[in-house]
Simulated assay, not measured.
Amino acid sequence: MTLELLEFLHVLAQTESVTGAATRLRISTPKSSRLLQKAREIFRDDLFVRHGKALVPTAFMKTLRPRLAQAIGSWEHLFENAVFRPETYEKTVRVCAMDSALATVLAPAMLEIRRRAPGVRFEVVQLDRDLLTMLANGRIHIGIAPRAMVHSSSIMQQMLYASQYVYVVRPGHPLALRVEAGEKMTRDAIEAFPALRINTLLDDESWLMPSPREQGAITMPYMLGAPRIIRESDMVLRMTGRLALEYVRSGELVALPTPWVRPGIERALYWHQRTDSDPGLQWIRSMIRSFGVKISDEEAVRRIFSTSPRFLAKEIDEF
Rank of each mutant, 00 (worst) to 15 (best):
R85Q: 12
E299S: 06
G73E: 01
V124L: 02
E16K: 13
R94V: 05
F79H: 15
R50D: 02
A103M: 01
S233H: 07
R24N: 15
E80K: 04
S277D: 09
R115C: 00
Y165A: 06
E315R: 04
R303I: 00
W75I: 09
A101L: 03
E87A: 12
G216K: 02
H77K: 04
G292S: 00
S206L: 12
L47Q: 09
A189P: 02
R115Q: 13
L237K: 03
R85H: 07
V120G: 03
R34L: 06
M287I: 09
T23W: 11
E318T: 11
M287W: 05
N81E: 14
D188Q: 14
D276E: 14
V125R: 08
G20F: 09
Q37M: 05
L135E: 13
G20K: 08
S211K: 05
A136G: 12
K294F: 05
M159W: 06
D45R: 05
K184I: 11
R114S: 13
R170P: 05
P279L: 02
I140A: 03
I142V: 14
A192N: 09
P30Q: 11
A145E: 08
E315F: 07
P30L: 00
L202T: 13
L3K: 14
Y247N: 00
L281H: 04
I218S: 01
W271F: 07
F193E: 01
K314F: 04
A217Y: 14
T240V: 11
L78K: 09
E214V: 05
R24H: 15
S211H: 15
S74M: 02
W260M: 10
D276N: 08
L64G: 05
A82Q: 14
V56T: 13
T200N: 10
W271V: 00
Q126C: 02
T258A: 08
A226N: 05
I316P: 02
R228T: 12
P279C: 02
A192M: 00
H151A: 14
I27F: 12
I295A: 13
I304G: 03
T200R: 13
D130K: 04
I72H: 07
L208V: 07
R85L: 03
A69L: 01
S153H: 14
L196A: 04
I218K: 08
E252A: 13
V179F: 08
S33Q: 12
Y270V: 03
Q126P: 04
A255G: 02
G241R: 03
M61A: 15
D203Q: 08
I218Y: 15
K91Y: 14
Q282P: 00
E123A: 06
A226I: 04
S277I: 01
P309H: 07
E76D: 09
V236P: 01
E90M: 04
E4S: 11
P309V: 09
D45G: 07
R116G: 13
I190N: 12
G216D: 04
I265K: 11
K31F: 10
D188S: 15
L177C: 04
G280D: 08
S277W: 06
H51A: 11
R50T: 14
A268K: 01
D234Q: 12
L9V: 05
N199D: 15
T92S: 04
L111T: 15
A59S: 10
S33G: 09
L177T: 12
V120P: 07
E7L: 03
